[in-house]
Structures are given as C-alpha cells and as structure tokens.
Simulated assay, not measured.
Amino acid sequence: MQESSVTADGRRLRGDASRRSVLAVAVDLASVEGLDQVSIGRIASVSLTSKSSVATLFGTKERLQLAAVAAARERFLDHVVDPARVQPRGIRRLVALLDRSVAYSQDRVFPGGCFFSAAAADFHSKPGKVRDAIAAQLADWVGYLAVSARYAHEQGELPALDDPDQLAFELQGLFEWMNLLATIRDTDEPYVRARRAYRDRLLAAGADPAIADLVLEPGAALRP
C-alpha cells in the first residue's frame, strides 16, 4: 500500500472519530437545550473544538442538525429496538419494545429525556429538512409499534385488537406524557404509571395476563 493511501486512511479514521465525538455532544445538548440551539459555534464551545473543525466536519448548521437526528436515531435503535428483537415477532416483542422505551427515558439515554420528543417540540412549526427528518423517525417508531401489534393480533395473541394503528397511537401518547412528566418533575412515578397503563391496554386487547404483566418489571420482557 502506498504511503499516501495510508495517510489518507488515517485522516479518514481521525475524521470519523471526531465526527462521532462531536455528534455525541450535539445530541446530548439538543435533548436538554433544544435542537434549534445546536449550531456550529455552540457545539464548538461545548465540545472544546474549534469552529473551523466543526464547520469542516458538517458545513452548515442544518447539516449538523440533520446529522444529530441520524445519530440520535442510532442511539435509540441501540437502546430500544435492537434489544427487543431478542423476542419473536408478536406480543412478546411488543412488550419488550414497551419495556425498553420506558427504560430509555428513565435511564436518561439522553440527559434531557427523549431526544425526539424534545426535537419535535422544538421544530413542530418550523418546516424544512430537519423537521421532516424528526417526523420520519417518529413515524418509523410508531409504525413499528403498529406492525408488532398487528403480528400479535394475526397470531391470536391480541384477539380483541381491532386497530393496531390506534393502539400504537395510544401507546406513544402514553410515552410522551410519561417522558414529559418524569423530566419536568424529576420523579420516577410516571414510569411506574406508564408501565401499568401499557399492561392495562394490552389486557384490554386480549393479551395473556402473564405476558402483559412482564411490562411491569423492568427487564423482565427481555428474558427467554
């Protein structure tokens, strides 16, 4: 391998590492102060990086914000969706997803609570690529909940369910209220109440009580 190629590869690796480091700061800051506060100057200050370095990595404030949304999505998948996939499709995976979504907020995967809840509140009236990216992530998540509920219904695990999309809408509504109250009151009570509400909604749809009850105990839904 030529020396120039080795040098280029080394620079690329350093650039990728710098990008990941800056984005980790950006998503954490956005969850606390709002995604609209994520700018090249602000992130340079918080990450102790020069403005020119951040500008070289991302170019514009919008591109930085879009990269932050993508990085937040990966962190969400790592902490919520991927762990739940140890369970088969259907009611067990749905319960695992609900369990992990509560833990995601309670464990402060993002220091300000759910990144996407904060970002949606920040950008709901600001049309553009950033709002579209946030909306797409929320749609993907709620859609995944609906697909999981639909599988459960088709497999006879939620026999009383007549509208998986409605169930997903209600489950996400419970999450948003839980996350908001828990972060603004700094208490775990909303997490306990959300787990009870999830269990009750699953029971109303005909879930086996033994499986629905798993959502009450953190981590129980991930066990074989």
Rank of each mutant, 00 (worst) to 15 (best):
A168T: 07
A221E: 12
V192G: 06
I211H: 07
I40D: 01
Q172W: 13
V54P: 00
I184Q: 15
A204M: 08
S148N: 06
V192K: 12
R185N: 14
R100P: 01
Q155H: 13
Y151E: 13
E157A: 08
A210W: 04
G59F: 01
A149Q: 03
F116N: 07
R12A: 15
V46Q: 03
A212C: 10
L171S: 07
L145H: 13
E157Q: 15
V25E: 04
P224E: 14
R89K: 11
R93K: 05
K129A: 14
A44D: 01
V130D: 10
S148Q: 09
D122C: 11
G90N: 05
L35P: 07
D107E: 15
V32Y: 02
G10P: 01
G34P: 06
I211K: 03
S4Q: 08
V38M: 05
P224T: 09
E154W: 06
A220M: 04
Y104V: 06
R223Q: 12
R201K: 13
A103W: 14
A207Y: 14
D162E: 10
Q155I: 03
S45C: 04
V54T: 02
V27C: 05
V86S: 12
R42S: 10
Y151N: 10
V6A: 15
S101I: 05
S31I: 12
D140R: 14
A210T: 13
S45I: 01
M178V: 02
R19S: 13
E217W: 10
V95K: 08
Q166S: 13
L161F: 04
